[in-house]
Deep mutational scan, measured.
Amino acid sequence: MATADDFKLIRDIHSTGGRRQVFGSREQKPFEDLVDLGWLKRSSVDSRATHYQITERGTSAAL
């Protein structure tokens, strides 16, 4: 179930172009929650960072 923080984060991601790069596993937790909701997808993972991209469902949630 989505929380107020989830909606705040997806709106922030949407307003800044729909993509986010995250460093460190602790910082990934809120983004992984949005992946579980179907609002974000992991577009790539490298040794230092994970890249996320907003989905259509995420765009709808952000509006």
Rank of each mutant, 00 (worst) to 15 (best):
R42K: 13
V22K: 03
S44P: 07
Q28L: 11
D5W: 08
S60L: 15
D5P: 06
S25C: 10
G58Q: 01
S43W: 12
E32I: 07
Q53L: 10
E32A: 08
S15A: 14
R11D: 03
D5E: 13
V35I: 07
A62T: 03
G24Y: 07
A2K: 04
G58Y: 01
R42C: 07
R42D: 03
Q21M: 14
K8I: 11
E56T: 10
D6Q: 14
P30I: 07
K29R: 11
F7E: 04
F23Y: 11
I54H: 00
D46H: 08
F23A: 12
Y52I: 01
S43P: 04
F23L: 12
E27N: 14
F7R: 05
I10F: 02
S60A: 15
I10V: 06
D46R: 05
D12G: 06
H51Y: 14
M1P: 11
K8R: 13
G18C: 03
L9G: 02
T50L: 06
D6T: 05
Q53S: 09
F31Q: 01
P30D: 05
F23P: 09
W39V: 00
E56D: 12
Y52L: 01
F7V: 07
Q21W: 15
G18S: 03
R26Y: 13
A49I: 11
R42I: 15
G18K: 02
A4V: 11
V22L: 04
V35P: 00
V45Q: 12
Q53Y: 11
G58D: 01
V22C: 05
Q28M: 09
S15V: 10
L9P: 01
D33T: 15
R19I: 12
A62Y: 03
L37E: 02
V45M: 10
T59M: 12
D36V: 15
R20F: 08
T59L: 12
H14R: 06
E56L: 10
I10C: 02
R57F: 10
S15Q: 13
Y52T: 00
I54A: 02
A61P: 01
H51T: 15
Y52N: 01
S25R: 10
R57H: 09
S43T: 15
F31C: 04
D5G: 10
P30H: 07
A62R: 02
I13S: 00
I13D: 00
D6K: 08
V35W: 03
A49H: 09
E32L: 08
A4H: 10
V35C: 09
P30S: 06
L34P: 01
D46F: 05
G24Q: 08
F7A: 03
L37V: 03
E27W: 10
E32K: 08
K41D: 10
T50D: 03
I10N: 01
G38K: 05
L40N: 00
L63P: 01
E27V: 07
S25Q: 13
R57D: 12
M1I: 13
E32P: 01
E56W: 09
H14N: 06
S25P: 12
F31G: 00
E56A: 12
L9I: 04
P30Y: 05
R57P: 06
F23M: 13
K29P: 04
R26C: 15
L37F: 06
A2S: 05
V22E: 03
R42W: 04
R57I: 12
R57S: 13
R20V: 15
F31N: 01
H14Y: 15
D6L: 10
F23N: 09
G18M: 02
L63D: 04
R11W: 12
F31L: 06
I54C: 03
L40Q: 00
I10T: 01
G38C: 05
T3R: 08
T16I: 06
K41S: 12
L63Q: 07
A2G: 11
A62W: 02
S25T: 13
D5I: 07
H14G: 03
S44V: 13
Q28C: 10
E32F: 04
S44T: 10
S43F: 13
L9D: 01
H51P: 02
R20I: 13
R26V: 15
A61T: 04
L63V: 08
S44I: 12
S15F: 12
E27P: 08
R42Y: 06
V45E: 08
D36C: 12
G24M: 07
D33R: 15
S47I: 10
S25L: 08
D46W: 03
Q53N: 07
A2E: 05
I54P: 00
G58T: 00
R11M: 11
R20M: 08
R57K: 14
D12S: 12
G38M: 05
L34F: 02
